[in-house]
Every structure is written in C-alpha cells, then in structure tokens.
Nucleic acid binder design. Structure first.
Lengths: 194, 194
DNA sequence: GTATTGACAAAAAACGAATATTATCAGTCA
DNA sequence: TGACTGATAATATTCGTTTTTTGTCAATAC
C-alpha cells in the first residue's frame, strides 16, 4: 500500500508543479499524467475527479499558511506581541503568495470563492491556532477573556480584510500592514487586562 | 441648463431601470437611448462613456446605503446601541440588496472589484458617519477614544466581512447577523469607558 | 489478481466568422 | 446657436463548429 501512497504523492507533486507554472485552469489531467509517465486514466484510480486532485494540492498550500501561523503562535514573545504578529504575519503570507506565486494564489481564491470544504477546515484551524495565543495570554494574566474560542472566531472574522485570499487579491496586492497594525492595536484594547 | 440636467436625470433613471431588469452587462446604451426616445449618440453628450453612466447610477445606489447608515447614526438610542445597529444594519442592507435585487448588487460588486472611484468615496462617507456615532459616544461619556476618525476607519475595516459587497455575495446571501452582533460586542469592549 | 492502459462517450473549451455595441463626428433641425 | 441625429470606424460579443478535456470501463500486462 505504501507504493500506492507514493504514486499518489508523485501525482500531487506533479500537479502542484504544473499549477504553479500554468494555473489550475490550464493544467489538464493529461499534462499531469504525462509528467508522471502514466496514462490519464491512472490518475482516476487515485482521485475521483480533477477537482479532487486540485483540492489535494490546495490542501498542502493551505497547510503552509497554517505552519506559518503556528510558528508565530509558538514564539517566545508576550501574547500581545504574538496577536499583532499573527494579524500582520498572516496578511503578509497571503500577500507574498499573491505577488510571488500568482497561480497558486488564484487557485486558493477559487477554493475560497467556490467554498471548497478544505477552506472551512482551514479557517477552523486558524481560529484554533489564534485561540492558543489568547489562551496563553489569559493564563499569563495578560488578557481577560470569557469565551476564548468565541473571541478567537470573532477576531478572525474581523481580520477578513487582511487574511481572506479574495480580499488580498482585491486590494491588488498592496500592503495593508499599517492598517493591520492599527487593527491589532484596537483589538488588543478589547482583551487586555487592566 | 436646467433642461439639460433634467435630460441627464432621465437618462440615469432609465439606465437604472434597465440595469435592474437586465443587469449592467446586458444593458446597452442603445436600450437606454430608446427608452428615453433619443439617439445613442445623444447619451454621449451627457456621459463620456457607458462606464460613466453606470457609475452615475451606482452612485445613487450607494447613496441609498449611506442614507440608511445616516438614519441609524441619528437614532435617539445610546451610542453603543447605534454602533451595534450600524454594524448589523449595514450588513442587512447589503444582504437585502443581494437577495432582493441581484442585478443591482452585481453592479455594486463590479464597482468594488474594479475599484471605481465612487467606492473609495463611499467608504470615506461610511467612516465619517460611523465616526459621528463614536464622537457622540465620547461626548456623552459612553466611550473613551483618542483618535476618533482613525478608530472609525479601523472599525469599518474590521466590518469588511459584513459590509463589503463582494463578501456579502460570497457568503451566498446567508445571514451573518449573529456574527455581526458578536463583533459589535467585542468591539464595544475596546471603546467603552470603564 | 492487481496495476495500468487504450478506446471511447459526454461535457467543456477554443476558435472564428457573423453580429452587435461602443464611441465619434460631420451635419441636420428648430 | 445649441440640442440632437445618421452614418460609420473600432471594438467587443454572440453563436455555431471543431477540438480538447474529463471521466469510464472493458481489455491488457505484469
């Protein structure tokens, strides 16, 4: 079975490379198959549809964003600093993807627009990572919050302008770092203990 | 000159009606001209391009949203209640336009996506209306805010998920009223005097 | 007997000629 | 003299056709 998983990974890696070059619309199952030296039909033994393949690729890209968020959450700085870093850092991650890897970003935008299941899951993960910062802040007496998960969800919703791939592309890739910092300042007022 | 302004208004009204029926893409300058019983060429005496005409129509629709926002800001309730009403009410206004008048909403979405100048102006107006609520709250000792205009801008940015026409359409017209209320609760914590 | 493929139907996309739309401007009409 | 139009060039869109792509499955190969 390991050989099958290996083949699956090769397909995903090849699809990922193709999409980065040509975008997910121009990338055909036949292209991916050719680069894997197999027939298009064989792809369908591993993925029920082309969409499922693209989804598997997108999942990896979203996981990169989650890794980035987790790295910020685990930093040794105080919780307030990490809240700010999360808001600004996730924005910058998205913006970099837009400017440096347009095809990848476009695929993530499609996933968001068409509301693929992986995106809802991704949002939940981000909320939970952000909640871990809040929880830490509460434990250390930095923050005062009743419902940590609920507050994390509300705060993530307030960050939509800076985190949502559609919005990041919408603002034509311009940096909203100043504004993101201002939002951090504002939101910290709501949770800081005094 | 009043006769010219009158003609201009007739053109805008006719275009508005046509767009509501058929959308701004299917509406042609010839259609609008026919309904005004004039030649297409004459439209161009009043508007340099079709886009300028659509913009004039959109301006009126955005003004309706501003009127709605102003009505909320002027209510006799306390500032906190008006902050909540603003957040929820502007969301509901957008959602209603999406569900009840899809073609109009689609045009506003195009204006937002393509960043027509009127949209930036509209956002500034909303910020200033919202700032008037904040100012009132500060004057009455309800809120404690340093930079009122700046805070208004940040808070409007945090409402993007609920106010931005693209986002409202994106969420498929579903009601985010619960979430909007939760955001109001959260943000009020940041500005309420204690 | 499991992995893989070639052949193929259904659906989608690309293409290109025919048609419609935008926008201009010299000229009419009142 | 100024509001308006008809004729028309440039551009964009539609629509029908061809080609490509997606997805299936019985047949093949290892």
């Amino acid at each position: 079975m390991s050989v099958m998983e290996d083949t699956r990974d090769r397909i995903v890696a090849s699809a990922s490379a193709q999409i980065q070059r040509h975008g997910h619309i121009k990338t055909t199952v036949a292209d991916v198959a050719k680069h894997c030296r197999m027939s298009p039909a064989n792809i369908y033994r591993f993925f029920p549809t082309k969409a499922a393949l693209i989804e598997a690729v997108s999942e990896i890209w979203l996981a990169l964003a989650e890794d980035n968020a987790r790295a910020i959450a685990r930093q040794p700085s105080c919780a307030s600093a990490r809240v700010r870093e999360f808001i600004v850092g996730v924005h910058e991650f998205n913006r970099d993807r837009y400017t440096r890897n347009g095809e990848v970003h476009e695929t993530v935008v499609a996933a968001t627009t068409e509301r693929w299941p992986i995106v809802a899951r991704h949002e939940k993960v981000l909320i939970s990572i952000f909640a871990s910062i809040l929880e830490d802040g509460v434990r250390k007496g930095e923050f005062e919050i009743d419902d940590i998960e609920g507050t994390a969800a509300v705060m993530i919703a307030a960050m939509v302008k800076f985190h949502n791939p559609i919005m990041v592309a919408q603002y034509h890739g311009e940096s909203l770092i100043e504004q993101a910092n201002a939002l951090a300042d504002f939101m910290l007022k709501a949770i800081k203990k005094r």
